[in-house]
Amino acid sequence: MSFINYASREINCKIVYYGPGLCGKTTNLQFVYQKTAPDAKGKMISLATETERTLFFDFLPLSLGEIRGFKTRFHLYTVPGQVFYDASRKLILKGVDGVVFVADSQEERIDANIESLENLRLNLKEQGYDLDKLPYVVQYNKRDLPGAMSVEELRRELNPTNVPDYEACATTGEGVFETLKAVAKSILVDLKKGK
């Protein structure tokens, strides 16, 4: 849940990037980190294995600017995508305000995408959240790879509820900020409703 501090006039929100192993969650955060002005970002933290696989989470704090005198801050987290890190994934979803599901567009990863999406829904439910009620966007990553499925097919499999979705190539940064903006905006709109 977002944290509203009237004393320091700040609103802090938490965004979690979810998806199967090697789909590009960490790459998304790295691109955001590289392209953000130094005064708008904090240090990026990656708790990763020696082979640069996410072990626990990546973390990147961003400030977006002010709305009505309140500083808006977003904390971006990724989860470890590999199946056996499920216990860690559950922990990172605690207190989430918005979710980005990063799908790997390659045909051979479609089953992994579907499994990860089901896992997301289940883990959220365990924490008392409903994915259909959370600010939520989908990103089809790795559009540049030759084995990428068509967006229509991916949409049919991974986005049956028709939430905003974006094509991306996280290594070049294409679609990365569009995805982030969409989820951040959706969180703010939700806050506006004062849920």
Binding site: N5, K14, G42, K43, F59, P61, H75, I92, G95
Partner: peptide, 27 residues
């Protein structure tokens, strides 16, 4: 906060990256 948001800090706080500290503590 248990979700990783820093609520407050006192002492030599300027020596530390408080945001990272908060998120890692919560983790």
């Amino acid at each position: 906060d248990k979700n990783g948001q820093l609520i407050s800090g006192v002492g030599e706080t300027e020596r530390f990256d408080t945001t990272s500290l908060a998120s890692l503590t919560a983790g």
